[in-house]
Design a protein around this nucleic acid. Structure first.
Length: 449
RNA sequence: CGGGGCAUAGCGCAGCCCGGUAGCGCAUCUGCUUUGGGAGCAGAGGGUCGCAAGUUCGAAUCUUGCUGCCCCGACCA
């Protein structure tokens, strides 16, 4: 993409309403624009990041055996009257009426609807296990939206719902999602720690929150230091192997980890001081096993092998991609701007043309831009007629992993510069050497996916 | 939902106390000179001063009502 033809409304000054670093940087980098309280438009750069996050989530959901569909944002109230949550949910639910004065709502979550879809078609235990997910906009009319897309009213959520015949297989479904989440967050460049969670209004017994550590996190968290060294499950994880999934789960939940709501001072005090980690955290995922909470009232039943009808065992599994975009920035930035992990960077490489209009410089830029494009890398070519300083500042702000700096001075000696945004290390190389290094990077990226 | 604050050009702000028809920096546009870490000079464009009433010869400024947004707390992917 040529920057001169892109839409990247960078702000030099920080809008005063933005308090936390991710909000400030997202606004300054032209990723989002607030339309009203807690509701944001995703501008091109932000949209690219959001799309990449969603695609990684999607790949890992699919790998774990979940199946994608898409449910609507608007739901009929009657569905929620069946589960009893129409009255329970309170003012967080945005309630609306259509022209026939039928009660509708903008979905804050989809347990009722997925249960309705399931019961409409599934009749037999042979239809199980089943895990359906979608990535769709949700609306929760928060009393006080804040922190940009971190706590917005409208937000994107991946929500998966599992259906099983009995508790044991339902726990296996839970474990599969547990492992999928660990992989997902690791691929997003995040260190996420699962913590036992309160089940809240969704209900159920078994529940974990996935928390990433960030100094600006909203809640205080407590965990054993061993978590910091745990490796996410590999691509070869045997998702169908019940015993293997259970031991993976057991391994990840053996040590102490809790948010402040679930914190147990007695258990905590038994851990040696040197092994305790107290930090701030951001919740980026939440999974629940809630049994028959919805299947029973909503009559989502199947015939078992014995011919008897049984309500299915269910669980739900949520990740907020829009919140993740902000959370990643909270966990990865410096004073100059964002530092994107490779996998979610809106572009992998930024080429700064230090003297647009200079024939030799233009030619060198265009040549590298075209060649890199053919490797499959996403390249942003800053071909604007701006001063070098402005281009460096822009590239640092938007946080692309690699910066290629091409100017007449270096070119006179056949050299251009390759800078790594994260380390800040700069290499002065020939254009071919830069191309080879980035091609290598491209191949490494492809392997990680 | 309780408490507090703000609303003037795309962004950041001044002007308001003490009424006289709007200004600064950045950004934008034009020209020239510049070009390796947010350039200089010259010129230009852009504002129903959140909305509505009221007071007044005259309201960004005073009064009242409304709306929006932000912050702090309790609650949440």
């Amino acid at each position: 993409m040529r920057l001169s033809r892109y839409f990247l409304p960078i702000l030099r000054e920080t809008p005063k309403e933005a308090q936390i670093v991710s909000h400030r940087l997202m606004l300054r980098a032209g990723m989002i624009r607030q339309e009203t309280a807690g509701i944001y438009a995703w501008l091109p750069l932000g949209h690219r990041v959001l799309t990449k996050i969603c695609n990684i989530i999607r790949e890992e959901q699919d790998r774990a055996g979940a199946v994608e569909l898409l449910m609507p944002t608007i739901q009929p109230a009657d569905l929620w009257r069946e589960s009893g949550r129409y009255d329970d949910y309170g003012k967080e639910m945005l309630r609306i009426q259509d022209r026939h004065e039928r009660d509708m709502l903008f979905g804050p979550t989809n347990e009722e609807m997925i249960t309705e879809i399931f019961r409409g078609s599934a009749r037999s235990y042979k239809d199980l296990p089943l895990n359906l997910y979608h990535i769709q906009w949700k609306f929760r009319d928060e009393v006080r939206p804040r922190f940009g897309v971190m706590r917005s009213r409208e937000f994107l959520m991946k929500d998966a719902y599992s259906f099983d015949l009995d508790v044991a297989s339902s726990v296996h479904s839970y474990n599969q999602m547990f492992a999928a989440y660990l992989r997902t967050f690791a691929r997003l460049g995040l260190k996420a720690i699962p913590m036992r969670a309160d089940t809240g209004p969704i209900g159920g017994k078994l529940s974990h929150e996935f928390i990433i550590l960030a100094s600006t996190g909203e809640s205080e968290v407590f965990c054993h230091k061993d978590f910091l060294g745990y490796e996410a499950p590999p691509e070869s994880t045997p998702f169908e192997d019940r015993a293997a999934m259970q031991s993976l789960f057991d391994h990840w939940t053996a040590k102490y980890a809790a948010t402040s709501e679930m914190h147990d001072e007695t258990a905590w005090s038994k851990i040696p001081e040197a092994e305790r980690v107290t930090a701030r955290g951001i919740e980026v995922g939440h999974i629940f096993h809630f049994g028959t909470k919805y299947s029973e009232p909503m009559k989502a039943v199947v015939n078992g092998p014995d011919g008897k009808e049984v309500p299915v065992q269910m669980g739900s599994y949520g990740i907020g991609p829009s919140r993740l975009a902000a959370a990643i920035i909270e966990a990865s930035h410096d004073e100059n701007g964002i530092i994107w992990p490779d996998a979610v960077a809106p572009f992998h490489v930024g080429i700064a043309n230090l003297k647009a209009g200079d024939a030799a410089t233009d030619a060198a830029c265009v040549d590298l831009y075209a060649k890199l494009g053919r490797t499959g890398l996403d390249v942003l070519y800053d071909d604007r007629d701006e001063r070098p300083g402005a281009k460096f500042a822009t590239l640092d702000l938007i946080g692309l992993p690699w910066q290629v700096v091409i100017g007449p001075k270096g070119l006179a000696e056949g050299k251009i510069e390759l800078k790594n945004r994260r380390t800040g290390l700069k290499d002065t190389l020939s254009p071919d050497e830069v191309f080879n290094k980035l091609q290598q990077f491209s191949q490494t990226m492809a392997k990680q996916a």
